[in-house]
Nucleic acid binder design. Structure first.
Lengths: 346, 346
DNA sequence: TCTTTTTGATTATACGCTTAATCAAGGTCA
DNA sequence: TGACCTTGATTAAGCGTATAATCAAAAAGA
């Protein structure tokens, strides 16, 4: 006969209620005061309840609160990759900084859904069909989802969440906070034009998501000003000598690359034909690097307000949680232009 | 009159049960088959249940499962500083990596107590007297606590927790996982001896905590082998020209410093008297740097198995949560010796 | 044939909290 | 003085699941 596992004795509401000489409903009301006051508490009683909570060391059980439909002051953070990136200069890290700051300011704890990892590969919101997120009041989703249907499915559950990065879905109005790539790229084009460039090429990733669309739109926005603009989407491998030759022969004087990898690949080809950047051709990177290369500073590029995006995501999420009847909040934040030495006047 | 937010209707066990023509208990048994079989299910019934789950798209509610099972599968992480260090090469970061990995493996979510931050200054476990930790099943404490009484107080609540780093407290047997500084420093002394050093000096921090005691003990362990050992504890500012002169005059050929700051301060003084390390004197750092200086690799030092410590902390915590009647688990993990160019033979 | 065991299920309760529905007591007001 | 409101509470009904306690029927054993 095995020894029975002794349960940890939790301090519960009724313990507190008993000590304070009130009912559990009063304790509940003290923990989470609601404007819709179906239960009212007198000063005296509240004082006794708080004292009892103090001496008993009571903390509400979030799980029970969740089940009962109350608020927990916990926001979930879901990432498709590891939350603490082993590469510490990781692209996602600043978002987390911002999220933590936002959570601090708003008195929220952060729940990281580390349990949803399968053996290998990317995480799933619904590992094995179940969804742990319900423990939190809402969640922030970070990173590129491998399967957009998961977003739709989560949306259908009615669970409040905010994605970092714009998300476009049929039949689902999502909350998101995104960088204003459109304006940022349009600004880059304008600056290039001011520097005398007339033929500009946009080199984008083959994977086309919302942010890529935004960049391309920003690029094309400036068509009017007697510029010649062309767009190509290709793998970095496709940027070879022949490609560069054609690009130059076409008269392009500056290339805007959607990723750092493209920019680096391009510079390598320039070097291969004994040219140099920006003498042979100018380059502007339209992104923050995924992992910080040693020489980032050298590059002319745009910067994404990542920490701020994280903080705003928390604010928007809380707003959405507090009034779910409101329409989804979509926030775009301006990017910065970072001058470097890879863009020159012509 | 505001429109009431219509709750999303969940597919529950009883829906499935109804469709399959059984009771909810059977459905529950089908989802989680336990060895302790208090409920048995026939083949026919199981088939019907599975079919019903399929057609209804049923997914168990993890929150309810947690409530009923008594386990939340949530581990708290408490840090006295910001959890996501803005300096990502931060000393604490690898611990978090390990904690996340451990949590993943054991199917736990991680709750970061960001709400317990006061305006400024270090965090408190009991902000305003309340303790949010009860939210989790247990917690991992990271960083140097400003006030040890908080630990005792937390211990007295019976809440399971593990500290990273050894903690010694009166009347409280704590769980911890620590680096084996004693063995590591003893090893360093042995290596120095093997290289011909006979007079070694230990320079420690004035702040004496458990880990400092451990290092000093490791240093003194080797007294037998006809070595001359001396210990000094001082601020980095106290390492000036006069001090270095005395140190050399005493015949010391190697200094073991407890922190990187001390090591750096010492080297600066050596340079100030036109000497160099390790020609003038050898230096070994007995720690991992708090923030990674550009030239860490140059230093002969010991390395702390931080990621592993984080992972083990999770394991130990879970073990403690599962069987609270067990005695506290104290784990020490071996450090590594990292050869560098600041230690030479004599 | 009568008792005992095994199999396959049901019922009822607990988990800790929120909240609608109630209610008692005292205060207002015509 | 009785009708009505306000205040400060209590009661009780969930939320979705797990599981101990039961139980009926069939199988096995004597």
């Amino acid at each position: 006969m095995s020894v029975k596992q002794s349960r940890i004795k939790r301090v519960t509401q009724s313990d507190v209620a008993a000590m304070a000489g009130v009912s559990t409903a009063v304790v509940s009301a003290v923990i989470s005061p609601k404007p819709g006051k179906t239960i009212r508490v007198g000063e005296e009683a509240e004082k006794r309840v708080r004292a009892a909570m103090e001496t008993l060391g009571y903390a509400p059980d979030v799980v029970a609160q969740s089940l009962a439909g109350g608020k927990r002051n916990i926001i979930g953070v879901f990432t498709y990759e590891a939350i603490f990136p082993s590469d510490s200069e990781n692209f996602f890290y600043p978002f987390l900084l911002g999220i933590e700051r936002g959570a601090m300011k708003l008195g929220q704890d952060l729940l990281l859904f580390t349990s949803s990892s399968l053996e290998k590969g990317p995480r799933s919101i619904f590992p094995g069909g179940a969804n742990r997120m319900g423990v939190a009041d809402g969640a922030i989703l970070l990173g590129e989802e491998p399967d957009k249907r998961e977003l739709k499915r989560l949306y259908d559950t009615g669970f409040p969440f905010v994605t970092i990065g714009r998300r476009d879905t049929d039949k689902a109005e999502l909350n998101w906070v995104a960088a204003d790539y459109t304006a940022a790229v349009a600004d880059v084009v304008k600056r290039c034009a001011a520097l005398g460039h007339r033929k500009l090429k946009f080199v984008g990733a083959t994977q086309v998501r919302e942010q890529n669309i935004d960049r391309e739109r920003g690029f094309m926005d400036r068509q009017a000003e007697n510029l010649t603009l062309s767009v190509e989407r290709l793998e970095t491998d496709d940027i070879d000598g022949a490609w560069l030759r054609r690009c130059l022969d076409d008269g392009n004087t500056v290339v805007l690359t959607e990723t750092f990898k493209h920019a680096v690949a391009l510079e390598r080809q320039v070097a291969a034909m004994s040219g140099s950047v920006p003498q042979t051709i100018s380059i502007v990177a339209l992104a923050s690097p995924l992992t910080r290369p040693a020489d980032v500073e050298r590059w002319t590029r745009i910067s994404v307000p990542r920490e701020e995006m994280g903080e705003v995501a928390v604010r928007n999420l809380i707003a959405q949680i507090r009034s779910p009847e409101n329409t989804p909040i979509k926030t775009t934040l301006p990017c910065g232009f970072v001058p470097g030495s890879t863009l020159q006047a012509i």
